[in-house]
Amino acid sequence: MTTTSAIEIAGLTKSYGDHSVLGGVDLTVPPGTVYALLGANGAGKTTLVRILATLLRADGGTAAVHGHDVAAEPARVRESSSLTGQFAAVDEILTGRENLVLIGELRHLEDAGGIADRLLARFDLTDAAGRRVATYSGGMRRRLDIAMSLIGDPPVLFLDEPTTGLDPQSRLEVWKTVQELAGQGTTVLLTTQYLEEAEHLAHRIAILHGGRIIAEGTLAELKRLLPPATVEYVEKQPTLEDIFLAVVGSDGSDQ
Rank of each mutant, 00 (worst) to 15 (best):
G32E: 08
L190A: 07
T33D: 06
L172S: 11
F123T: 09
T46W: 01
R78Q: 13
L225E: 12
L240K: 12
Q193M: 09
W175Q: 01
A128K: 01
E221K: 00
L159T: 10
R204A: 05
L240H: 14
T54M: 06
L52F: 11
L83R: 01
T126Y: 00
S170R: 07
V49C: 02
P31N: 08
T187W: 02
D111A: 15
A128P: 01
R97D: 08
L219A: 14
D117E: 14
R122P: 02
S15E: 14
T191M: 02
T239S: 15
I151F: 05
T46L: 03
Q169S: 05
P228R: 09
E98S: 04
V77W: 02
T46P: 02
E199W: 03
K236V: 15
E232F: 00
V178E: 07
P227G: 06
D167H: 11
T2E: 15
L125D: 08
H19S: 11
L195V: 14
V178M: 06
T164L: 11
H203R: 09
G252Q: 10
K236M: 14
F87G: 04
V77L: 04
E110A: 15
G61T: 08
L181I: 09
A206C: 12
M140D: 07
L150A: 05
P154Y: 01
A10F: 06
L52D: 13
T4N: 13
E79N: 10
T54Y: 02
E216W: 02
L159K: 11
L48Q: 01
Q169E: 11
A64L: 12
T47P: 11
A6L: 11
E92I: 00
A147S: 09
A229W: 01
G44T: 06
E92C: 03
A10Y: 10
S81G: 13
G185Y: 04
D153S: 14
D167T: 07
L94F: 03
E92K: 06
D160H: 08
D59K: 08
T187A: 03
E221G: 07
L102G: 06
Y35R: 04
D254R: 14
T177C: 15
D69N: 15
R171M: 08
E161M: 02
P227Y: 03
L150K: 01
H200K: 15
A116Q: 00
D69W: 08
L38T: 12
A71M: 10
I146Q: 00
K14E: 09
V156F: 09
G210T: 03
R118F: 02
A58F: 09
D124N: 14
V247I: 14
L189Y: 03
G44D: 02
S253N: 12
A182N: 07
L189N: 01
V234K: 09
L201C: 04
E232Y: 00
I151S: 04
H19F: 13
S149C: 13
G152E: 08
L245C: 12
G85F: 00
T126R: 13
G60R: 13
V101E: 10
L27F: 05
E235H: 13
A88Q: 03
D127C: 00
L120F: 07
D26W: 08
G17L: 01
L37A: 03
L195H: 07
A36K: 12
R212M: 14
I51A: 00
